[in-house]
Amino acid sequence: MQLTSRPHPGATVLVAAERIDQASAGEFLAALQAELKQHDPAAAPVVIDFAGVDYISSVGLRALMVIAREIKAGKGKIGIAALQPLVREVFGIARFDLVIPCFDSVEDAIAKLST
């Protein structure tokens, strides 16, 4: 699991990569929370670029859910963009697109979340 931030004028873009499973979910959540301390999610929407994520387990979904709740509590917006097919399938089965909106691309996410 890796999480880096990519500078963007209109949004907080975080780039996740590799597997988010039982072993790395805790680390993933801690990294997300650390990033959100630096970038106020109420000021600009948060988009997590999932293009590099190969696999996400239910524990990884839980981390996303926790973050989504925190951001929504702070009147911010969050979205996930560019999911690989396997990950999109997991989101589909678990209907997690109802928990966090999913978008085809980062730009698409920013455009829709900024409105």
């Binding site: 239910s58 859910m65 678990a94 209907r95 997690f96 109802l98 928990v99």
Partner: peptide
């Protein structure tokens, strides 16, 4: 008809 997991949203 499927919704998200129980407790993911809380009020689905």
């Amino acid at each position: 008809n499927s919704g998200p997991p129980l407790c993911a949203l809380g009020d689905y």
